Amino acid sequence: MLGVHFAITAEQERALLAAADDVDDDAVSGLLDEIEEAGWDGDALKVDTDKAWDAIHRCLTDGGLDSDAGEYPLSHAILGGRDMHEDFYVVYVTADEARDVAAALQEIDHGWFRQRFDAIDDPEYRGALDEADFEYTWANFDDVRRFYTNAAAAGRAVLFTAT
């Protein structure tokens, strides 16, 4: 599954929340399609994490993929937050939570992240857990950190998807 974060507009946020409140996965999927096609190329308010989102979440939480794992606000950088779809990852983080996540991510250094990466011990993790995998994960983490800084500065909520 490939991961993407979007710093969504207030209008997109209202529509997604209404669809999720109605428990309408089809409406959420349709809105997600619209968001994905909204012309984000080169935009600082979108970041692709390819498959690195998996390892990033594990490093920021307790080593697993549980959406309830870890401590706030780091737990909300990838899978924490409000689940908005039953069949795949569509996770919503409020603008206030995005500000908290942005601040917490700024505190993480290379050494801390490396320790957490080296501690991943889950047979379900599909990465190589080697030096190349770490550098790939670190580079994508740095992109996520920059993205959250931009989302927080714009006062936007965040939507993470992995499909």
Results as ranks from 00 to 15, higher is better:
G155P: 08
Y125L: 08
D24E: 05
D50R: 12
R146M: 13
F147M: 07
L45M: 09
E34I: 01
L17P: 01
F147H: 06
D43K: 13
I8D: 02
F88C: 09
N140A: 12
Y125A: 02
L74H: 01
F147S: 04
D142H: 12
D121C: 15
D24W: 01
E34H: 11
G39Q: 12
E86M: 10
E71L: 08
A132W: 10
Q106T: 11
Y136G: 05
A154D: 12
G70F: 02
G111F: 13
L16P: 00
R145C: 05
D25N: 15
I108T: 03
D133Q: 09
F6C: 03
W112M: 08
R126N: 10
G80N: 01
D122G: 11
L159E: 01
S29G: 14
E97W: 01
D130Y: 05
E97M: 10
F160S: 03
M1I: 09
D130V: 14
R126E: 09
I120F: 06
V158T: 05
W40V: 13
A38H: 07
G30K: 13
Q106C: 09
D21R: 09
H76S: 10
A77S: 14
P123A: 14
D21K: 10
A153R: 14
V101H: 00
V28P: 00
Y89N: 03
L16S: 02
R82P: 01
D48K: 14
V4I: 09
A55K: 00
F113C: 08
D142I: 02
K51G: 08
D100N: 11
A27V: 00
D133S: 11
G64C: 13
E135C: 07
E124K: 08
G64N: 14
L74N: 03
Q115F: 07
A15N: 07
T161I: 08
K51P: 04
T9G: 00
T137D: 08
D143Q: 09
G70H: 04
R114K: 14
H110N: 14
A55N: 02
E135F: 02
Y92G: 00
D121T: 11
Q12F: 04
E11I: 03
Y72S: 15
A77I: 13
V47P: 07
V23H: 15
A98V: 02
A44R: 12
F117W: 00
F147W: 01
V28K: 04
N150A: 14
A153K: 10
R116C: 05
